[in-house]
Amino acid sequence: MKTEIDARGKACPEPVILAKKALETHDVVVITVSDEAAMQNVRRLAEGLGCSVTVERRGAEATLSISRQAGAGRGAVECCTGELKPSGPMVVVVASDVMGRGDDELGRVLMRSFLHTLTEASEKPDVIIFFNTGVRLAVNGSDVLADIAALSGAGTKILVCGTCLGFFELKDQLGAGVISNMYDISEAMLGAGKLVQV
């Protein structure tokens, strides 16, 4: 199914949102925009979704013909605020040795499962920060130490809160990553392009 959208004069991110919505229900979307930024953003959205895009320019206006390829996802992109991809590093914050609140035994299984999937993820986090009881995951004897070490080996920076290791008397037990402080931790968190707290 094909649809045409006139997004001329609409400010970003509206053209992107219109295109994204249309792609959820149509295989071919033809959208006309009236400035370069909108054209770039719509094109990035479409390419990010695995669609093929052709652009036809007429002065400042441009018409993009977007075709959904077989197997392309439907609209699975983050909401746009003009900038589609975050520019800073991806930071994962592990604030506890369990994942989620409720049952701790279940939470420990979920955490192990989560860290395992990180080792297999195509896009690995740039930084993982462990604090509070989360530091227990990065010490000798931890069930997930091998996963954390593998992530570290693959280039992920592992920051482990020194205050927390001290509090739990685990400072000499660190098995992966580096002992860090609140300056490094807050800097990594504030400078993150994407921050995920587990």
Partner: peptide, 8 residues
């Protein structure tokens, strides 16, 4: 003592 790993 049988090696294994809990995974999703």
């Amino acid at each position: 003592a049988l090696g294994h790993k809990v995974i999703p």
